[in-house]
């Protein structure tokens, strides 16, 4: 399903991004087939298929097929893409360590199959389902979203997945459902960061959205990236992607989705309530107490040029989501 029709102001991305940089499906598949290795070009947007995550080949067939059969969603980010090698080697996934390269180094053996997801709370049809059953009715789309980390860096990534709204509708939310709570797997044996003594984080990682935020067509459940199954370090097998919120809202390796009447607790808010709100919408006018949010470093950058971009309201998705917050004081509900 296309998430929206193209607006007149939306110039197709192929016309804006230089042709040499823009990646259409055919180029991409050709690159995959050719096994193009471009790891030495990591300053260059062409270096898309540098050393793909090894686990892709071992993924179950139904997963690989689903990703393979994706259609183009709305590629509304007109920016050039962040190379695959950077999107998969510069990650915040504290379950595997707090260093940016820890996830790609330590998530290799993480087991994503079999995988089960529990859906409960205020739904008509609760239960625990295999990932295959979760995915089955949803055709997958590729959508290019800007990704803005709360640490003031950003990427542009082609995600593969489907609208969370379609999933929620399947399980028939009751009239009491006002929020959606998410939970990451808790498994310290596989996730060494969860047994770190000085992390300060209370595991498992939890996140939440207001129901209308969750039902917004932009809000996405992701199972793939760059035309491949989602690498472990990026939150395999199933993660959230809310492009107008800071990255930490987009919870990874989800095992539980609960519809609730009350606003659910969220991990970073529990850790530092003055710094990370429940909403955490990208907002250049509301600084993090310790640093400015008015700009972002678009990755990759270079030693002598941090590639600053002005941060956009709602990460540039104002048209799609601003109505959700009408009348709200965003300085108060940060």
């Amino acid at each position: 399903m296309l998430i929206k029709t193209r607006k007149a102001s939306d110039i197709p991305s192929s016309e804006i991004t230089p042709e040499s940089v823009y990646l259409n499906r055919r180029h991409f598949m050709a690159a995959l087939a050719g096994g193009a290795v471009a790891s030495g070009m990591s300053g260059n947007a062409l270096a898309l298929v540098g050393n793909p995550a090894a686990e892709d080949a071992g993924r179950p067939k139904w997963w690989r097929n689903a990703v393979e059969q994706r259609v183009d969603g709305m590629p509304n980010a007109k920016d050039s893409l962040t190379p695959y090698s950077d999107a998969t080697r510069y990650n915040n996934f504290y379950e595997f360590g707090t260093g940016k390269t820890d996830p790609s180094e330590y998530a290799g053996k993480f087991k994503t199959d079999p995988w089960q997801v529990t859906i409960d709370g205020e739904v008509g049809k609760p239960g625990t389902f295999t990932l295959e059953d979760i995915l089955k009715p949803h055709p997958l789309e590729e959508r290019i979203y800007r990704f803005r980390c709360v640490e003031a860096w950003s990427m542009v990534v082609p995600w593969v997945g489907f609208s969370l709204a379609d999933l929620i509708k399947r399980f028939e939310p009751t009239s009491k459902a006002k929020y959606v709570a998410f939970e990451t797997l808790y498994d310290p044996e596989q996730m060494p960061g969860q047994s770190s003594r000085f992390s300060g984080i209370k595991w498992p990682y939890v996140e939440g959205l207001r129901l209308d935020e969750a039902m917004n067509p932009l809000t996405m459940m992701v199972v793939g990236l760059y035309g491949r199954t989602l690498p472990n370090q990026n939150g395999a097998p199933l993660r959230l992607m809310v492009p107008w919120k800071y990255g930490f809202k987009s919870i990874k390796s989800i095992v539980k989705i609960t519809l609730t009447e009350k606003q659910p607790p969220t991990t970073w808010n529990l850790l530092a309530p003055g710094e990370y709100g429940f909403y955490s919408n990208v907002n250049p006018l509301v600084d993090h107490p310790r640093w400015s949010q008015s700009r972002e470093r678009r990755l990759p950058n270079s030693l002598f040029d941090p590639n600053w971009h002005d941060t956009q309201m709602f990460n540039g998705y104002e048209e799609e989501v601003a109505s959700l917050y009408k009348g709200m004081d965003l300085k108060k509900f940060y």
Binding site: W153, R297, L299, N301
Partner: peptide, 15 residues
């Protein structure tokens, strides 16, 4: 490292 790309995609910050 910073000039050769070994500091990752955000080298100035890491440097």
């Amino acid at each position: 490292q910073g000039l050769s790309g070994a500091l990752g995609p955000d080298p100035a910050k890491t440097f």
